[in-house]
Amino acid sequence: MTTDNATGAAPVRFDTKIAVLLREDLETWQRLNVTAFLVSGLGTVIPEVIGEPYADADGTAYLPMLRQPVLVFEGTKETLASAHAKALGRALPVAVFTSDMFMTGNDADNRAAVRAVGKDQLDLVGIAVHGPRNAVDKVLKGARMHP
């Protein structure tokens, strides 16, 4: 739930949830990098998650961003594999980041690293998922909020 403090509007409760699940053994820089990559995929296929462009009081324009909070969770390798399978089983949009992607330096090599492995053998270090609140909650069962 968020409150629009600028306008004093009532808190907003979204019907959907955006969540990122990270493997608990990642280094800090990896957590940040993986989160940024994962959420970038959502707006490309789910345009309704993107809000309106920003502008400051001087009229300087800024890019639009996600219109709702992104909740970040962490879990074990097994929790990630389970969440991935549940998300796919529910036909929710999913972005993935695998450990092999840390060794690549560009988008083409990232896609090749994922394409080289079957979905049940991916060495996942993070996923992002979007969908109805209850469905995303069920996908994330066993994960805990990122500290």
Score class of each variant (00 low, 15 high):
residue 8 G to N: 11
residue 22 L to Q: 06
residue 40 S to I: 00
residue 34 V to F: 10
residue 21 L to P: 06
residue 11 P to L: 03
residue 42 L to G: 05
residue 38 L to S: 04
residue 15 D to F: 02
residue 43 G to T: 02
residue 14 F to V: 00
residue 18 I to E: 01
residue 14 F to W: 15
residue 16 T to V: 05
residue 6 A to N: 01
residue 39 V to P: 00
residue 4 D to E: 04
residue 22 L to W: 07
residue 28 T to H: 12
residue 7 T to G: 06
residue 12 V to M: 09
residue 5 N to Y: 13
residue 17 K to S: 08
residue 41 G to W: 02
residue 25 D to Y: 06
residue 8 G to F: 10
residue 14 F to G: 00
residue 21 L to H: 01
residue 39 V to M: 08
residue 8 G to E: 02
residue 29 W to F: 15
residue 29 W to V: 11
residue 26 L to W: 07
residue 15 D to T: 10
residue 12 V to R: 14
residue 41 G to V: 06
residue 43 G to I: 06
residue 31 R to T: 14
residue 12 V to D: 08
residue 15 D to C: 00
residue 31 R to W: 04
residue 30 Q to A: 14
residue 2 T to Q: 15
residue 28 T to A: 13
residue 23 R to E: 09
residue 20 V to W: 12
residue 31 R to A: 15
residue 10 A to R: 14
residue 7 T to C: 05
residue 30 Q to I: 08
residue 17 K to T: 12
residue 20 V to S: 04
residue 41 G to I: 08
residue 19 A to H: 11
residue 4 D to H: 04
residue 16 T to C: 00
residue 2 T to L: 13
residue 15 D to W: 02
residue 33 N to T: 13
residue 14 F to R: 10
residue 31 R to I: 04
residue 17 K to F: 05
residue 9 A to Q: 11
residue 3 T to H: 10
residue 26 L to Q: 10
residue 3 T to F: 06
residue 42 L to C: 02
residue 24 E to L: 01
residue 25 D to Q: 10
residue 12 V to A: 11
residue 16 T to M: 07
residue 3 T to A: 12
residue 10 A to H: 11
residue 20 V to E: 05
residue 21 L to I: 04
residue 36 A to N: 09
residue 16 T to E: 15
residue 22 L to T: 08
residue 15 D to M: 02
residue 21 L to F: 06
residue 26 L to M: 08
residue 23 R to A: 03
residue 38 L to W: 03
residue 3 T to M: 05
residue 19 A to K: 08
residue 14 F to I: 00
residue 41 G to K: 03
residue 5 N to V: 13
residue 35 T to C: 12
residue 25 D to P: 04
residue 23 R to D: 03
residue 29 W to H: 13
residue 5 N to H: 13
